[in-house]
Design a protein around this nucleic acid. Structure first.
Length: 424
RNA sequence: GGAAGCGUGGCAGAGCGGCCGAAUGCACUCGCCUUGAAAGCGAGAGACCCGCAAGGGUUCGGGGGUUCGAAUCCCUCCGCUUCCGCCA
């Protein structure tokens, strides 16, 4: 959420910047809502101030003047009530308006609105030259006996997966490897957090109110809870409505959680395999930092996500997303894309974003400097990494002519095996 | 699910319907002292909103009510604690 005054400030250039992501900002409407709200607050405050003066005058008033004072105080009550009513209405309208305004894309991002418009930052590792036709992860997984999609569909419908035997063990190993790397080498604190959260929590990070159709929603009795689409939601909101001393930042948090996504609107896309599921496991990285330093922190975070792929020896590239392609709450996003031999191209495996103070304003994550001055923190997050898509990359990049798959060396201590062999 | 109790500032903890935004202690900030630190001494400081400012308003779990006036009285919701039941 934005500070309305910042949006209205011509120096912000908000209309042009939001237009880059296809959002039309109605400045006139915003001005009207803000002005009306402030005027109502003023009126209420003035009337209330007079009430207070009268109230304290009453007890020292002579019996003759008392009735007039009490009468005047009674009148003021309705003035206050009316002003408050108007304030409440306009406040709600203003909030609705502001909650729907996306974050301002950073000027450094390329123009455009699709992943084709992304700008290549760097590539790492060489896509292996295979002297055989590569299988995709579904065929590999089935031949190896570690993946059972038909039975997943039997249990839950499309877009779910069952991993079996060494496949399940591999998933567990990958998650542990990620967490160990981030906690031991990158300094993250590991959390175990709820995967069902309230509407307010979802609003804090920007999933609500706009993207309810993307979420799984539960309702038991009169209680409504949402399944998290990413651990970003609980991790970032851990400090909602808190004031953090600047000296305690940056905070670096990580958690492995299941992630639930409705994938509404992606019918027919990536219907095969583990790429796009309603439920998948992911290790998420969240940083809560001094807003002054957010862009530097983004580079640090990106490095942490990249380190995972480097440790695994998986070829990937980093791209800077186009201004029109970044998420609602983001102002700057890098995507990390991993090489998939079966598709002959790079596919997104991690998204690393700087949200500036956008989420912090929604969630109320404040900072206090040593001199007492106050502000909002910046929040960042990145996948570090999703387990399923990593498994896909490991299978596909590690496949050999005989149908076996080499397990990355770094993972072997976690798996206890270094090769997966096809079942006969 | 049943019974009882409790919700005050970062924490602990006072608080007669007006003199309470709220005592006190700890923590905090800034000085002094010290080679440095601790201790000690002194000073300061809650948060949020409107306002260029002066200033004003809100805030004692949330909401509603009584009253000219409520942290203080009433209703209601929420949360927490303890006991019982059930349960992983």
């Amino acid at each position: 959420m934005h500070d309305p005054r910042v949006l209205l400030d011509p120096a912000t250039d908000a209309v042009r910047r939001l237009a880059r992501r296809g959002y039309h900002l109605d400045l006139a409407q915003l001005e009207k809502l803000l002005g009306g709200r402030n005027a109502a607050i003023q009126r209420g405050d003035e009337a209330r101030a007079e009430s207070k003066r009268i109230a304290s005058a009453v007890k020292n008033a002579s019996p003759e003047e008392r009735p007039a004072l009490v009468e005047r105080a009674r009148e003021l009550k309705s003035t206050v009530a009316a002003a408050e009513e108007e304030h409440k209405t306009l406040e709600a309208e203003l909030q609705d308006f502001l909650l729907g305004v996306p974050n301002l894309p950073a000027d450094e991002l390329p123009d455009g609105s699709s992943d084709d418009d992304a700008e290549l930052v760097r590539t790492w590792g060489e896509p292996a030259q295979l002297d055989f036709a590569p299988l995709d992860h579904v065929d590999l997984g089935e031949k190896l006996g570690i993946l059972d999609l038909p039975r997943a569909t039997k249990l839950s419908g499309p877009r779910f997966a069952v991993l079996r035997g060494q496949g399940a063990a591999l998933e567990r190993a990958i998650g542990r490897f990620f967490l160990d790397l981030h906690t031991r080498r990158h300094g993250y604190t590991e959390f175990s957090v709820p995967t069902l959260v309230t509407r307010a929590t979802m609003t804090g990070t920007g999933q609500l109110p706009k993207f309810e159709q993307d979420l799984f929603r539960t309702e038991v009795a009169d209680r409504e809870l949402f399944l998290i689409p990413t651990a970003e939601v609980p991790l970032t909101n851990l400090h909602a409505r808190e004031t953090l001393p600047l000296t305690e930042l940056p905070l670096a948090y990580t958690a492995q959680t299941p992630c639930f996504r409705s994938e509404a609107g992606s019918y027919g896309r990536d219907t095969r395999g583990l790429i796009r599921l309603h439920e998948f496991s992911k290790v998420e990285l969240v940083r809560i930092v001094d807003a002054e330093r957010s862009r530097e922190e983004l580079e640090i975070l990106l490095g942490h996500a990249e380190a995972v792929l480097q440790e695994l020896g998986l070829a990937y590239r980093v791209v800077k997303l186009a201004a029109g392609d970044i998420g609602f709450s983001a102002e700057f996003t890098y995507d990390i894309e991993v090489w998939l031999p079966s598709q002959g191209r790079y596919r997104e495996i991690s998204s690393v974003s700087d949200f500036g103070t956008f989420q912090a304003r929604r969630a109320g994550i404040r900072t206090r400097a040593k001199d007492g001055s106050r502000g909002f923190a910046a929040t960042l997050n990145g996948s570090g990494l999703p387990v399923g898509r990593t498994l896909v990359a490991i299978l596909e990049q590690g496949q050999q002519a005989d149908g076996s798959v080499r397990i990355p060396e770094a993972l072997v201590p976690y798996t206890g095996f270094d090769v997966l062999h096809p079942e006969q």
